[in-house]
């Protein structure tokens, strides 16, 4: 029986989701669009590995995860020294942000989360994927997804509290490892 063809129109429909997720993940418009483009091209190359009838969108996120992890490993090695400590930028975060800049703050705080935590949090929140789906996409057990999610949410809360001007006399934030 011939396998059903991929509905190209459906894939086009996934692009906004993929772009939004990639943008939140990388924090950079150019790298995000590169990541999406690479994901779609890899999907073309590896389409034979996709099981017809299974969730195409989840499969695309899996490909993107793999590409991003490969890229992130390289980037981490390159930027290790360039990583900024929260304490060093505390004054930036304290600057009274207009309400419209909340998104900027959120993105900035997101970028301070470890990559695996940021990814898990975004898949669960932004993409509204189930915990089992996230586990499959990121290739870890569900228990790991849950612990990453807990750490991500607790940490982002601290970071966002630190970013608010009302937290002026806040105790210095320290990076947790």
């Amino acid at each position: 029986m011939p396998a059903p063809a991929v509905d190209a129109q459906a894939v086009v429909g996934f692009i906004p989701d993929l772009r939004r997720y990639a943008r939140s993940l990388t924090g950079d418009a150019w790298s995000a669009d590169d990541l999406v483009q690479d994901t779609l091209e890899r999907a073309c190359d590896r389409l034979s590995l996709w099981r017809p009838g299974s969730d195409l969108r989840a499969w695309l996120f899996t490909l993107m995860h793999n590409l991003w992890v490969d890229g992130a490993r390289r980037a981490v090695r390159q930027q290790q020294s360039a990583q900024v400590d929260v304490d060093d930028v505390a004054h930036e975060l304290m600057a009274p942000p207009p309400a419209t800049e909340q998104a900027l703050d959120l993105q900035r705080c997101l970028m301070r989360l470890p990559e695996d935590q940021r990814e898990t949090l975004l898949l669960v929140s932004l993409q509204d994927l189930g915990y089992e789906d996230v586990a499959r996409i990121t290739g870890v057990p569900v228990g790991t997804v849950m612990s990453r999610l807990s750490r991500a949410r607790a940490r982002l809360r601290e970071l966002m509290d630190g970013a608010r001007p009302t937290a002026a006399p806040a105790p210095p934030l320290r990076r947790l490892e």
């Binding site: 991929v6 509905d7 190209a8 129109q9 086009v12 996934f14 999406v36 779609l40």
Partner: peptide, 21 residues
């Protein structure tokens, strides 16, 4: 980004996916 028209290269890659299958 949810409402913005995606770049042409992405749309093209998505269409290629349909052809490939």
């Amino acid at each position: 980004l949810a409402t913005e028209a995606p770049p042409a290269a992405m749309v093209q890659a998505a269409r290629a996916l349909g052809e490939r299958r």
